[in-house]
Design a protein around this nucleic acid. Structure first.
Lengths: 273, 273
DNA sequence: GAGTCATAAATACACCGTACATCAATTTGC
DNA sequence: GCAAATTGATGTACGGTGTATTTATGACTC
């Protein structure tokens, strides 16, 4: 097991690239000091760094990330890009954000935090659950990158504002005789479904960002490719796809359909007692 | 609109990086010939390329990709890695696969193709749908990278073997008085749900790949982080999470629970006529 | 006043996907 | 029969990615 060269503590595994030598930036700096100590003092001031006016913090970074993702898609978000937008050095970001993975979690949390569910909400468990689903869907509509990132959050999820949705749903169902474990499962089931029903929204947004010309080209190529695979004797039903079926498989309609089926399923569960 | 410098045809947009100049490799080669033609003939043979023994093809590449993903996770799959494993040059892969995106689609298709649904399957729509869900779940268990990639396939999906699942589900429900659009929606709803219910399996697999030592460290860090966010007065229900709730939120149990709720929901729809 | 720490940023490494260039071998068209 | 075109394989290079380490400055503490 590798240990820190300065303090001897266990090193957490390096995410990628070279193995770690120090357990923290503090140890790295300490080691640097030690090395510098016994070295001819040739070091002198070369650069006077500009002081950032307002100062950096986690919120600023996350807001910048969300803004980029909203405008140009999740793919446009990178540490370099954010640093450029904020006018700071790339590595400065790491002072406030552990890394790319944490930034993703923070983006998800920020998005959910901007749209809290109302208290106490409408009457009745069904209206409540339906509302919570529509609110979450509205979020995915507003931030097409969100569903993908929400599905990719660290597990168990580390975003309080995302958990707030789960909590609200559990409270919506509390007092109807269901066990705690069942409340958990219903709440998770709904979130799970919405997340992946919303994934196609990212494709729509990607298309919308193209120029009218290339968008048409792109859509045509996709459609053509699909029609080629669709026309397969082993897919008798899919071969019958027409305008009506395409309409039915629009994200909006899949969302709506699945929501009602799930709520009907929950109703069955409640009737059984 | 940019056009090919050789043949003047419209250029499809470059996926990333430099803009295209030619519409195909053929045109690129033609341009090269033209350039070489009026140039002192200094070019001579420098290298005799080794002929690949068995020859490359799409299947070989896709199988290699699936093998790497199974063993080391989706993150380990890269064009360079595959080329290395297969003992060929990186760019040789592009002769059989359009690019990374198509490779993803092909991996998904290959996985689903390896587990076709039985014909005619069990009796009754409910048993059929349940079987199809369990088969798909078994796939996600066998290939933890699959759910993520399946969610990220191009839309509409271009993988016949994935569509075969949709088709089979639609046939399972055919003849019960539901409209074609409803069949589509039920089939998509089930697939959608399973995909995102399976995402956490990738985390489990990632954990399993770690050494026992680092796995414990990793799990402890995750758990600690979660318990910190969970203990929040604004999350009264989540704060109550105990062993039972954690057990209930295991992927396997979420899968099982959601499946039965959805099938109950479909049953309600059928009763209504 | 010396030592420590928080902040900021440049540099460097190990990756990634893929456009284009370049060769040899094969196929095609006349 | 032979030149032209095409195909297959591969090297090189570009423009990115995340992040470990190093270097530097000021502010705070003992």
């Amino acid at each position: 097991m590798a240990t820190c060269e300065m303090c001897g503590r266990a090193l957490r595994p390096s995410v990628r690239g070279r193995p770690r030598r120090y357990c923290s930036r503090a140890c790295s700096a300490r080691a640097y000091r030690a090395r510098v100590a016994d070295r001819p003092a040739t070091v002198e001031a070369r650069r006077t760094p500009e002081v950032a006016e307002a100062g950096l913090d986690q919120d600023v970074i996350v807001r910048a990330a969300v803004a980029v993702a909203d405008r140009e898609g999740a793919g446009a978000v990178s540490m370099r890009r954010l640093a450029g937008d904020l006018g700071v050095g790339v590595m400065s970001l790491y002072r406030y954000v552990a890394g790319r993975e944490e930034l993703n979690d923070l983006m998800v949390d920020a998005a959910f935090g901007a749209r809290p569910l109302p208290e106490p909400g409408p009457d009745g468990w069904r209206a409540k659950l339906e509302l919570s689903a529509r609110e979450e869907w509205a979020l995915y509509r507003a931030h097409p990158w969100l569903s993908h990132l929400a599905a990719a959050t660290t597990r168990p999820p580390n975003a309080p504002n995302l958990l707030a949705y789960t909590d609200w749903r559990m409270r919506a169902l509390d007092g109807h005789g269901l066990g705690f474990a069942t409340l958990v499962q219903i709440a998770i089931m709904i979130g799970t479904y919405l997340q992946s029903a919303a994934v196609p929204l990212a494709y729509e947004a990607q298309a919308a960002r193209r120029t009218r010309h290339t968008r048409r080209q792109w859509a045509a190529a996709r459609q053509e490719a699909f029609e080629r695979t669709m026309r397969d004797p082993r897919l008798p039903m899919v071969s019958e796809f027409g305008a009506e079926a395409f309409e039915a498989s629009e994200p909006e309609n899949i969302f709506e359909f699945g929501l009602h089926r799930m709520l009907d399923g929950v109703a069955v569960l409640l009737e059984r007692g």
